[in-house]
């Protein structure tokens, strides 16, 4: 899932301060699960903004809504009437949702209420961790299902640096050394020989280094009619 967190209220306030009527719209998928931008959080964000703006002497109107997914036209389109009736939209979805709204409603300013953080999972309730960088060329098969790009702070491919201490990364005592995990896991699986191969520099052209990534599949593609 996509993990995100709420921006500071003052930062959001500064973005929307000049608009009188704002639609605050949440997304009921990833950001609801990570408790950053679902229906409940829309309520909190809107309430905080109303108060913060009123203290500044403004009388904002906040309309609250939450759709199933902001990253699909099917759901985004249901917002049309509401968007027509406001001056601006504040999206508490991930960056994908914010941009989907901006693309669908070209005449309306759309602002982000969240910082989209990473792809990851709730490791414990209230603790999310990044596990995938989306590099476009998955190597988990050779690393025992633990990604050195996402989980080693330096993204090293040929083994650990010398910086780990008690199994923790040199960057933070809170962070497991990704390479320690990889090594231990492959040892347990009796697959340590997999690590002996000297890996060449990674081809980053499948990462975002070639610009916006797109994926086309003829078998499921049909031209948009609307």
């Amino acid at each position: 899932m996509i993990v995100a967190e709420q921006k500071p209220i003052q930062e959001i306030k500064a973005m929307i301060a000049d608009h009188q009527k704002v639609l605050v719209v949440g997304c009921a998928t990833c950001v609801t699960v990570c408790m950053a931008g679902g229906e409940k959080e829309v309520g909190i964000i809107a309430s905080c903004l109303r108060m913060a703006l009123r203290i500044d002497g403004k009388e904002p109107q906040m309309i609250e809504d939450c759709i199933q997914r902001q990253c699909e036209w099917e759901f985004v389109d249901t917002l049309k009437d509401k968007v027509d009736g406001v001056d601006a939209v504040l999206s508490s979805a991930c960056g994908v949702g914010v941009q989907a709204l901006a693309e669908r409603f070209p005449n309306k300013p759309v602002y982000p209420a969240l910082n989209t953080s990473f792809m990851g999972m709730p490791k414990e309730h209230g603790l999310w961790v990044e596990n995938c960088r989306g590099c476009g060329n998955c190597g988990l098969g050779r690393f025992g299902g633990i990604c050195p790009i996402a989980r080693c702070s330096k993204g090293l491919l040929n083994g650990p640096c010398g910086g780990s201490q008690n199994g923790k990364c040199e960057v933070s005592k809170e962070m497991d050394c990704g390479w320690q995990l990889i090594y231990e896991r492959l040892k347990r699986l009796d697959q340590l020989e997999k690590l002996e191969e000297i890996l060449p520099p990674k081809d980053w052209s499948t990462d975002r280094d070639k610009g916006q990534r797109r994926m086309y599949r003829g078998d499921v593609y049909y031209e948009q009619t609307v």
Binding site: I9, I44, C48, A52
Partner: peptide
């Protein structure tokens, strides 16, 4: 914390 951010 939110109340601090809001300014209340």
């Amino acid at each position: 914390k939110l109340l601090d951010e809001i300014g209340l």
